[in-house]
Design a protein around this nucleic acid. Structure first.
Lengths: 324, 324
DNA sequence: CTGAAAGCGCTTACAG
DNA sequence: CTGAAAGCGCTTACAG
């Protein structure tokens, strides 16, 4: 049986109220009593039960994080920073991998609510979260619109898309194609596409965007792109994994990079930097995104629901390397 | 105020005991009463408080996962599978990134204990976990020895190292070098090194192993290796990130792969397959490792501490590709 | 400076 | 088939 506060009290010869007080450093307690209590705790290896504490305080210091898949380096890194920052602030993180499936997102959300999390950080397509939000559950979204009231934090996707498209134009690419996720999803990431298309038109070019349908293999789309666009000499992929796929396919087809084809990705995770440092990409400030999201979440946890910054777009950075 | 079981009871016109019974589907309850209760729950949007439940049951269904860093694709994937499997079994996952720092590992462990986790899965160097284990905390380690009593699960590192070394020999490499993590850490992963050295000696070769000191940048070691071993024509790296670093350095030095230098890594994550599919590597069965670890953990949670498989090594697979 | 009592939101014998 | 009571391990007014 795990020792409880009563066991400590008995050994120290005081009441459990007193033990609780030294535990929480609250009210006046004589040094002598404190000592006795600490010794007793040590003696029986006592650790307070946070469950009981949370139950009383109505505050768990638990944060739920819903991401599609921590296998993906971007989300893996996001999870790392969010968890690290949470820990430094006294929060604990419940991890949820939704695989972008709405049914899973909903189940996870219910689980988080049952576990009385103080707040949720979601990288999610689930607009149903709205219903839960009405219950005053603090929530912040990363790179996804959930509702008019849920704050979104992300990278400056428009600036990123613009920088990517402009680089390819500057590098004298004549036939620039963009690969993006499905646009029916209303994510700020669509701005990457919009920026590309705007830049193209500004330069009198015809934008060509290939979409990767939800849950379809992006490799097929890449292959299709090469088949249909033999003249392609510049590709802006909306994430680095796809960009890597483009490079692989180009090699297979004997296209020289950057000679015949220039490629630029998006995300710029540490993993991509380590594995494929030659990839030119737009780096998201993942740590800053994490920090900002947590700050906005904390405001809500502290009861501040008005004056929240509803949309925060953090600066991206061009990492120029070998593929351009 | 969140509704409690009492609010439901009041609306349904029954006692909270009855509400609890329909919640848990326990004992006999008339259909009529059940209906009333369900309707009441729906009406006020009631979700049971798992904290209170866990407090009573002395069972949280919480599992703590301590990994060095979810940014690393191997750990990101491990976290994904462990979380997914946990969820499918009704467990919830508390994520902890220790950065391999013992002080952090200890703090996390205490946090997990305070939160009454049912068990811990650790990818950790912390032998201090031992002390906590005495408290009957169910625990299983992945690829790290914690104590004689803590079950370890991992890939068959010896077979993997052997296969890697033998492939390079078969491919006619004359000067094969191995890069590994620091050996002072007693991890089963040292078997990768041992297997390489055994195979080399069997073939009358001199094993040469470069170690990456703890917390040092592996790139420096790679660079040093190339400087000191100009004749090197085969490298077995103990993980794919290092292997990718070798490829990058080789390119920089104008060494043709696989013509002048053959490279093989270890891990074979989905991420590496997506980003660097040309890398030959030894694939760990990450999903199987996750599943096995959870099964062994669950046995402990169910009270079975004897007859646990103390060391489980799951089969690896050679993924042969362009770098050999 | 310290303790007895009530309560956080549940569940489970026990009784009827 | 249903309810009153006790208790899980804490904390916090309240009282002294």
């Amino acid at each position: 049986m795990k020792p409880s506060i009563h066991d400590v009290a008995k050994i120290a010869g005081v009441s459990s109220t007193t033990v609780s007080r030294v535990l929480n450093n609250r009210g006046y307690i004589s040094e002598k009593t404190k000592d006795k209590v600490y010794k007793a705790m040590e003696e029986i290896n006592y650790f307070p039960n946070d469950l009981a504490r949370s139950l009383f305080r109505k505050r768990t210091n638990l944060i739920g994080l819903i991401i599609p898949n921590s296998s993906n380096p971007f989300f893996g890194e996001l999870a790392f920073y969010i968890e690290s920052i949470c820990t430094s602030m006294g929060y604990k993180l419940l991890l949820c991998n939704s695989l972008n499936r709405i049914d899973k997102e909903e189940k996870y959300l219910e689980m988080l609510i049952r576990n009385q999390v103080d707040g949720v950080i979601a990288v999610t397509y689930n607009r149903g979260i709205l219903n839960y939000h009405q219950q005053n559950l603090p929530i912040v979204a990363i790179d996804h619109y959930l509702s008019e009231k849920v704050p979104v934090v992300g990278s400056d996707n428009f600036a990123g898309g613009k920088k990517a498209a402009e680089l390819l134009i500057k590098k004298d690419c004549q036939h620039i194609v963009h690969i993006n996720g499905p646009i029916e999803l209303e994510t700020p990431a669509n701005l990457r596409r919009k920026a590309y298309e705007d830049v193209m038109r500004e330069h009198g070019r015809q934008p060509i965007t290939y979409e990767v349908p939800f849950h379809e293999n992006y490799r097929n789309i890449i292959s299709k792109l090469f088949d249909e666009q033999p003249a392609v000499d510049g590709i802006f992929a909306s994430d680095d994994i796809i960009a890597a796929g483009v490079i692989t396919e180009a090699k297979k087809r004997g296209k020289d990079i950057p000679g015949q084809l220039k490629v630029i990705g998006y995300d710029g995770t540490e993993t991509i930097q380590a594995i494929l440092p030659e990839l030119t990409t737009i780096q998201q400030p993942i740590e800053l995104i994490s920090k900002t999201a947590i700050e906005i979440l904390e405001k809500q946890i502290e009861g501040e629901f008005d004056n929240l910054p509803l949309e925060t777009y953090l600066p991206i950075q061009l990492f120029e390397s070998g593929t351009t």
